[in-house]
Design a protein around this nucleic acid. Structure first.
Lengths: 134, 134
DNA sequence: TGTTTATGATACTAAATTTGTATCATTTGT
DNA sequence: ACAAATGATACAAATTTAGTATCATAAACA
């Protein structure tokens, strides 16, 4: 079971590269070249990041993308939420006949607890964290 | 992002029902009727549980399935592992060009930590836990 | 011993999600 | 006006998840 999917992965990598770059703006083309991510797919991802205000985009010549936030404000968990949606159960695991007999909410609460645990771990994973040497 | 998929869900519900049942053996047919799970799909799931030694199956007339373990030994995490595979990253999130600059292993270790946290939470979710009233 | 009633094995199909492609529109600098 | 960038959007392929269908096998029992 994959905790992180490819589009999240790509987003992280692109953001890392942009963060590290000396240039003020980075073009898709450069990202594609360096990161070896399929172009149109990456563009779609960057457009989403732009809409979600994690990147600012500049059109036209000398255009490209730049970060809108400090590196330590860009959290892996945010990216996961954007590209993979919030963590949740399948739905309600117990329905109808079975439900009344079984304390459904137990499991739900458990999952909530797990989600909190995962999120809190992931919250410490920021771009800054990933880029810090040593 | 779904933490638990439908086959895990179905497995839990089937096991719960079998655990609660007064009968020594429960047939697929009864499970299908009560739990409203598509028959052939549930059969496949039960066959897997049988292979994985969580259920014992009896063929022929008066056949059916029964638990092989105590309820507190059947853990949600085991079912998730069976039906969804182990928790993992997409793969290595950073490759080639980017990798040397970034401490890949950081993230990996983080995920390992997260996995441990999730597993340890889930380890306390057993059939017994789910079935306990109040 | 043969029929009924259950599971075992397995191959196939459908649906949903994830990943990737293609195309045209829009904006901006020169 | 043109070139170089992103924006929007519709489509397609691949993968994973969910569900179906069919025949084989084993056990109980008349």
């Amino acid at each position: 079971m994959k905790l992180i999917t490819r589009n999240t992965d790509y987003a992280v990598r692109a953001l890392c590269f942009i963060a590290q770059s000396k240039k003020k703006k980075v073009t898709v083309e450069e990202l594609v070249r360096v990161l070896e991510i399929p172009g149109p797919f990456l563009r779609k991802i960057l457009q989403i990041l732009n809409k979600k205000k994690l990147l600012k985009s500049y059109k036209g010549q000398n255009g490209g993308f730049s970060l809108t936030k400090l590196q330590d404000k860009i959290l892996l968990t945010d990216l996961m939420k954007i590209f993979q949606g919030p963590l949740k159960l399948n739905e309600c695991i117990f329905k109808k006949q079975v439900c009344p007999n079984i304390k459904t909410c137990k499991l739900k609460k458990k999952i909530d607890k797990i989600e909190k645990c995962v999120i809190s771990e992931l919250k410490s994973v920021s771009l800054a964290y990933l880029l810090k040497k040593n």
